[in-house]
Computed example of a mutant assay.
Amino acid sequence: MKSMEGVVRVVKDLPSHVSKHKIAAVKVPNRVTEDYIAKHVEPIYRSKGSVRLATYFPSINMKKAGEKSDADSVACLAMYESLELQQETHDLVDSMVERLRTLSRKSDGQFIAVDLRVEMLDKKGCQGSEGKEKSCFNAQEVAMFLRKIGFEKDTTIYVTQSRWDESLDSLKDLFPKTYTKESIIPADKKKKFLESEDSELEKVIDFYISAESNVFVPAISGLFYANVAGKRIGSGKSQILVPANIPDSSASASSFLSHYVSKKNHFAYSCYC
């Protein structure tokens, strides 16, 4: 929360005069306007003296909306700089990233993170419809995309799929050094992070490894892609390549740079230059 110092006051514990049982809960969509706050949140705050905000995402759109405002800058900082990993999780992610870099010795420690979760490919959002741009790519399509834009067989690839699925074999056929988190996580951490009922822990690992990779490839368009893009923009890691079906035998990787980067239209640019 140190990044918010001088912007908003953040306290670790509730003040003694505030009762948890009397805090009014207000459901607020992500990235609301100041007018929305004045109309829907401020009256409740003035009436009750405190509010608990529950944020939800009505859409996956992370594009900047018009001219940057002070509120956008604060929201951007809160979204991408306010939270840090607990030390155990931070150390785990670091060890997994280091493991991937070690496996990538022949490519100077560089690796690709691909957001590809097999179960998502069958969901409605990935089915697409006639006339709409393709937004999800399977393992074989990702493999062909990476090969055609110039990645060599020895490239190390991390896939967000938790455990190996036979549908990933086509990716491993072209890129033998393809790994899921199950194969690179330290053995003593598997029970807590992979066998827990809390799948959010796995998503956290995926998010930070995808943010740290040299190249990020979102095979599935959605909120995860948008959030990873924001984190990468903040750290200057602009290599986000969006898959496509390439009819020719080869193409330039730069042609597939995410619009979030090429057009600088991601919300993260509200607080990052």
Rank of each mutant, 00 (worst) to 15 (best):
E182N: 07
G222F: 04
I205N: 12
N138Y: 06
E130S: 13
W164T: 01
T180S: 06
G109P: 01
V217H: 02
R147K: 15
K203N: 15
F216P: 03
D115C: 03
I185F: 08
G128M: 09
S135E: 14
I112L: 12
Y225Q: 11
P218T: 02
T180K: 03
L146K: 08
T180M: 03
S162V: 10
Q140H: 12
D169R: 10
I209F: 06
I112E: 09
I220S: 00
A113C: 14
E152A: 11
P176L: 11
A211Q: 08
Q127D: 04
W164N: 00
M144F: 14
F111G: 06
Q161R: 02
A139H: 04
K153H: 15
I184L: 11
G125F: 11
E88N: 07
D122Q: 09
E141A: 13
R163Q: 05
T89G: 06
S104D: 07
D173A: 13
E152S: 14
L116P: 04
A187C: 00
A143E: 13
V159I: 12
S183Q: 14
A219E: 01
D115Y: 12
K190G: 04
S213L: 08
F111M: 09
I149F: 08
A143Q: 13
D169C: 03
K148I: 14
K123A: 09
E130N: 06
I112N: 07
S104V: 05
Q140A: 15
Q127G: 00
I185C: 09
E119S: 10
Y225D: 11
E88F: 00
